[in-house]
Amino acid sequence: MIAFDLALAAGILLCAVSALTRRDRTASVAAFMVLGLLVALSWVRLAAPDVALAEAAIGAGLTGALFLRAARRLGPLRPAAGRTLAVPAALVASGLGGGLAWVFASASPPAIYAPLVAASLPESGVSNPVTAVLLNFRAWDTLLEIAVLVVALLVANLLGSRRLVPVSLGEMTLPFARIVAPISILLAGHLLWQGSSAPGGAFQAGAVLAGGLLALVLAGLAPTGTLVVRGALIAGLSGLAVFLIAALGSEALTGSLLGYPNRAEKVWIVAIEAALTLSIAATLCLLFTGFEKRKTS
């Protein structure tokens, strides 16, 4: 398998170079998306399927879509002003990279988390250790992470990025969307439910659901009126609201912020995850489609 790893690593580096050097914006974004998929593959190799799913859906898929939108709106790459610094910068950067590779490879972490997770997993209410870490042991990180999404939504709302206007992509778009959207709902539900015991969870499910919604929007099948955008905004905010209320509620019950009541952990976790899935889907969708920009002048 070492040959596969080497080939994969080489492919990843090539895609990164291509994504960062191609002068054609679309080609560069395409290279970035391939990079995301290859990276997801490498994370399967590193035994991290939860992360691989998230990377493929969010890192490659949604980020790539955002980049494509920006590539259209920003216009072609302007010619670089000067290249005098390129060589020294390349030397410094490769020096730094080599140094970092050396430090990271020479450091081997003592096993501190693994036994702790193994010992606490039976009390966490779920059997997928990654979900246990995300929604129980370190749920506070996850709550704040949702807050980051909310603030990004607020900033996008403030800037009033131009609403995406669906353009006809050909006659296959409609049937495609009609198939993709229901499948994405089913898949999201599956990912959400299986997240407690197998790879998956709110983030992967939310991203898949967002993808289905976007297919509908792009095919012109979803309503995009002001009221709908406002509803989606409220839905996007609601995940953090539910999480915060659950945090304070659990404190009222057990005396500890985000300390779920004994033996009811799974119910709490699945309820929070369900709310997060919808809210993440709405947020990611809005971040992509943008808000209506009212002309003031």
Partner: peptide
């Protein structure tokens, strides 16, 4: 000092 969710550091926050 408080351990969030009752999970002591380093696992918890």
């Amino acid at each position: 000092a408080e351990a969030l969710g009752g999970w002591a550091a380093p696992l918890g926050i």
